[in-house]
Nucleic acid binder design. Structure first.
Lengths: 190, 190
DNA sequence: GCGTCCATGTAATTCGTTACATGATTCG
DNA sequence: CGAATCATGTAACGAATTACATGGACGC
């Protein structure tokens, strides 16, 4: 399981609290890894016990105390070791494609509407990513190695969303043609 | 959880056994949904109890007996109902991007090698999908609605893999440039 | 004789999800 | 005056992963 490593990667980038992590996993990092705050706090306790991180309690006035975690050397070694190991390919579990697989069981208008919804959601995300690209990565050739690494994860997001939008368009178009060319075919289910 | 519905969708397409399902989830359907045989048998027991499928035991000679499942009307209704509901977007958990996020902690050569491995794997899958496209979907305009639906899931696979291959290429190129332009930067970790 | 295919399952453990809980502060 | 933000957690449940188990048939 890579939740532990995803947390280590975030803490390596910048020491932070469970609460901060939850926010990051819900935003930028969330493009390639999602986790809820409950998962995070449980995992933090586990990897602190492992000795990969140490937490220092920070007392605050007018706010709850917080605990900021930093990588230990052992944690850093583990992370580097993990990065070095060959990675499995992503396992996809996409509801929308399961639905489309049995899509002939429902009126095509319904499929088209659903595809349009998804097209819009992905277009929105694409917009967000493109804004980030313009703001922070105007000149990709001149980035440091760290910068390049961040930029490449963003590029993956941009490509992914942009491809999703195009596919939705293709799918909607083809369904519209199919629909009109076989008008009698939707009253065929028992 | 959509495992139940993914199984229903397969059985709706063609009645089959748990063993058959496991093979399908490992092959074609596996592009958009993965499941092991243990998950499948457990889920089959659950959805048979629900009344969405019925199993008939088929006695065999020289082979273990098997149980072939078919959709009930209730199961078919449920599947249609599920397809009709709005779908959540896919939650991505991609190890490779987590590694890239902390990629500056390891020598860039290592990242490049890993990206090349992935590029090759995705290129292989792409080849498989493209062969299927040529064999079974030579003429997309003339497909039935059912054919169009299958074709569109395949198109998603083709786009996904092809985009992945392109991104790997982009990433490798950029890392090679970054590497040479900041040669001194990898001996900087404590 | 050894591995693979057929066909189904149990058991243990880890991981993910949902609900519940606290309590002060700040913004509208 | 109510909602959101900060900050952390417990408890219960459901789902996924991994390991273990059986046993004949067939090809090399």
């Amino acid at each position: 399981m890579a939740l532990a490593q995803a947390i280590l990667a975030c803490i390596a980038d910048c020491p932070c609290t469970g609460y901060d992590l939850a926010k990051r996993f819900d935003g930028s990092v969330g493009f390639f890894w999602k986790a809820t705050h409950q998962q995070i706090y449980r995992e933090l306790a586990k990897i602190e016990e492992q000795g990969w991180i140490v937490g220092e309690t920070i007392l605050q006035e007018n706010r709850p105390d917080k605990k900021r975690y930093s990588l230990t050397e052992s944690g850093s070694n583990h992370l580097v070791q993990w990065i070095t190991e060959p990675t499995e390919l992503l396992v996809i579990k996409e509801d929308l494609l399961v639905k489309l697989f049995s899509g002939h069981l429902v009126p095509p208008e319904l499929l088209i509407a659903e595809l349009q919804r998804h097209q819009q959601s992905h277009a929105e995300r694409l917009g967000v990513y493109q804004t980030l690209e313009q703001q922070f990565f105007a000149n990709p050739q001149s980035l440091s190695l760290k910068g390049t690494c961040s930029y490449l994860t963003l590029r993956k997001g941009i490509r992914y969303e942009s491809d999703y939008v195009s596919w939705c368009e293709e799918a909607i178009d083809l369904l519209k043609e199919t629909k009109t060319s076989t008008t009698s075919s939707f009253v065929r289910e028992s």
